[in-house]
Amino acid sequence: MIPISPLSLRFSQIIICALLGIFASSIFAHGISGGDARFLNQNEGFHFFIYLYLGAKHMVTGYDHLLFLFGVIFYLTTLRSVALYVSLFALGHSITLIFGVLTDIQVNVYIIDAIIGLSVVYKAFDNLGGFERFFGISANNRSAVFIFGLFHGFGLATKLQEMTLSENGLLANLLSFNLGVELGQIMALIYLLLLLSISQRITDKPVFGISVNIILMAGGFSLTSYQLAHYFAA
């Protein structure tokens, strides 16, 4: 985990308070909700800040993306490796987000969200050393994070596709949304890293990491079963 100096801790706290303020009204929202959706449906052309905001909001309030990200960075020890894995994740989801929307690939939103839930299970189980124990070798973490990034991107794409997006300025809007997603991811990362740093101060016993990852795995199963329930109900 990342050692954070008291100075940077205070700085992070200020940033987080600000972010929580911005997103407090919609912290439990997921996807693109009523007012945003209607705005997208009614407005043609290029709207940089709107799409930037929507992308960031989606990432910060999208607990499935956050849980996966949390699992990915849980046992990383240097900021450099955090940057590497997060970049791989960002590259993966950017590819499918942009190509999914541009080529209008229709994927069932519940199935994609169920797979995203499973990505959380995968990462938590991997953190527990499960793959190493059962298969002798740990899966290639870099490609796994990249591939699950692709699925997360499809999830983001389906959320955008639920809206009638105008062809006018589509690519520019899409890139703004994507940029917003990355900004939101950085905001969320600050929060998650701070959380990990605080927890490290409280305890460095291995049982803590094991407990957290079992809870994370349960969260992933919960997300998956929730999406599957909606898939079969629809």
Partner: peptide, 10 residues
């Protein structure tokens, strides 16, 4: 890079 808990859990 990882300090996973594979040595701890059976």
């Amino acid at each position: 890079m990882h300090k996973t808990s594979e040595s701890i859990l059976s």
